[in-house]
Amino acid sequence: MEAASIPSPVGHEGEHHHGPPIANQSSRVNSEVLGILLFIISEIMLFGAFFAAYFFIRVVSADGWPPGEGLPVAVAGINCAILLSSSVTMHWTDVSAKRDNQMAMRIGIVTTFLLGLTFLFIQINEYLHLGFTPETSASASVFFGLTGLHGAHVVIGLLLLWMSAVRIFKGKVGPDHHRGLEVPGIYWHFVDAMWIVVFTTIYIL
C-alpha cells in the first residue's frame, strides 16, 4: 500500500482528506493476504465435508468403488499435470509483477488462464464419456460431488484470474500494486493443491 511511505496521518490525499485515521498495523501479515488464507481454511473444510461423505459412502456403507466401469485415470493424470503447470505460470506472473516486467505478466496470466480453461474443458468432456451419472449410485454421486465442487472452484478461480488479467492489461499491476494479482494467485494455488488431494482419493486410491 502506497501510504506506507508517508508517515503523516493525513495520508496522501493532502488537504482533501476527510477519511478515517490510518489504522495501526498490528501484524506483519497483510490484511488481504490473511483474509484469503482464512477463506481458504473455510474452503478446505467445505471439501472436508465432501471427503467425509466420500469416507462414509466408500468405507462405512461400502458402496462399490469406483463407480461405473472404472475411471479414466490416464486422462485425469494428464489433466492434473495441466493444472499443476498452471500453478507454475501463476507463480511466474506473480514474480514478474514484483519485478515490473509487464510483458511477462501478460504472457503469464494468459497462459495460466488458458491452462485452467483447458483443465475445465477436459473435465467436462470426461463427465460426458464416463458412462454413469450422479443418479446411478451413491459412489457416482460422491464422484460428481467432489470433482464438481472442485470444478466450481476452478470456475471461481478463473473469474478471479480474469479480473487480474483485465487489470494487468490496463497496466494497473506493478511492484507497488500487486495485491489484486497476489490474492487471486494464492486462491489459484489452493485450487491446484486441492486437486492433488481430490485426484489422489478419487482416481488413485
Binding site: 462414509f56 462405512v60 458402496d63 450422479p134 449410485s137 451413491a138 460431488g145
Partner: peptide
C-alpha cells in the same frame, strides 16, 4: 448435498442407491 439429492437426483442420502443417511 441435500439440494443435490432433491433437485438433481444425487444419492448421498438414498440408501437404495448406496447412500448413507447417518452421514
Amino acid at each position: 448435498m441435500v439440494i443435490l439429492d432433491r433437485a438433481l437426483g444425487f444419492n448421498f442420502f438414498n440408501p437404495s442407491g448406496g447412500g448413507d443417511v447417518l452421514m
